[in-house]
């Protein structure tokens, strides 16, 4: 099966010379359709950088990012933008929403940017907002919504355009534990019930525990990986095998 996302020897260096920061050092990662992957690691280990490169928000120093078989690094800005619009949904920690647009308009934004007819875009946005439990908040501006509600709008927005993958960078970083839990559960639901592929960056183990697979990042490298037993048998045995390898 072709992975939704795969990276090959992905590296990213910020700055140069003495002040160069090696944010990523050769990342090889593949995400299968329907998988819910969490990336964990201490702050500054390169989690966000990885997400940005996969999302085509930044360009790698070397290595490749393949989205459904298409090499992102070979596309120009407009092509990457169009790809982002159609194949990716983003949820960030802060500044997720455009402050002057209401929830419905925010959720419909990527589709409108993609040239969909506004009526259809709003219809789809409304459906998704209702599914994430924001039916009664459609016309509220972001400033009138709680942090958790804002993230829900962002999630609805990410879902509405039916992207291939949802990229979330610390979506709960700004929320209290109860709201965090709810968002994490929502993501879990999106994965299990609606079959979406999710790449979630977090440093909160409680949130990461909802994922099917956890990738541990340290100093720009993948140091460990855990596949949850509930996912399926072969993968569990695969991970056991892997653990053995690490041990040897």
């Amino acid at each position: 099966m072709q992975p939704i996302v795969s990276t090959q020897d992905l590296t990213k260096v910020y700055g140069h010379g003495a002040t160069a920061v090696h944010a990523l050092r050769g990342i090889n990662l593949a995400i299968q359709p329907g998988e819910f992957v969490a990336v964990m690691g201490p702050s500054g280990c390169g989690k966000s950088t990885l997400l940005h490169l996969i999302g085509g928000l930044d360009r790698p120093t070397s290595g490749k990012v393949m989205i459904e078989g298409e090499d992102l690094t070979r596309l120009n800005d407009d092509q990457v933008t169009a790809l982002r619009r159609r194949k990716m949904g983003f949820v960030f920690q802060f500044f997720n929403l455009i402050p002057v647009l209401n929830a419905l308009e925010n959720a419909a934004l990527p589709m409108i940017l993609d040239g969909m007819r506004p009526n259809e875009a709003y219809q789809r946005a409304r459906e998704w907002l209702e599914r994430v439990g924001l039916g009664p908040r459609l016309t509220h501006r972001p400033s009138e919504l709680s942090g958790g509600e804002q993230q829900r709008v962002a999630i609805a927005r990410a879902l509405a355009s039916e992207p291939s993958i949802i990229l979330a960078d610390e979506p709960t970083g700004n929320l209290d534990s109860r709201a965090s839990e709810e968002i994490a559960m929502l993501l879990r639901q999106i994965s299990s019930e609606w079959g979406r592929t999710i790449l979630l960056v977090t440093h909160d183990p409680r949130i990461a525990a909802y994922a099917d697979r956890i990738v541990f990042l340290k100093d720009g490298q993948i140091v460990d990986e855990t596949i949850m037993e509930s996912r399926n048998g072969d993968e569990v045995s695969a991970v056991v095998g892997k653990m053995k390898e690490i041990g040897d």
Partner: peptide, 22 residues
């Protein structure tokens, strides 16, 4: 490696409890 094995196990447990909780 001890840490990784322990962590994997803890995460499995956490995942189990989270699923239960959901």
């Amino acid at each position: 490696r001890l840490i990784y094995i322990q962590r994997a196990s803890l995460f499995q447990e956490l995942h189990r409890l989270s699923t239960l909780r959901m």
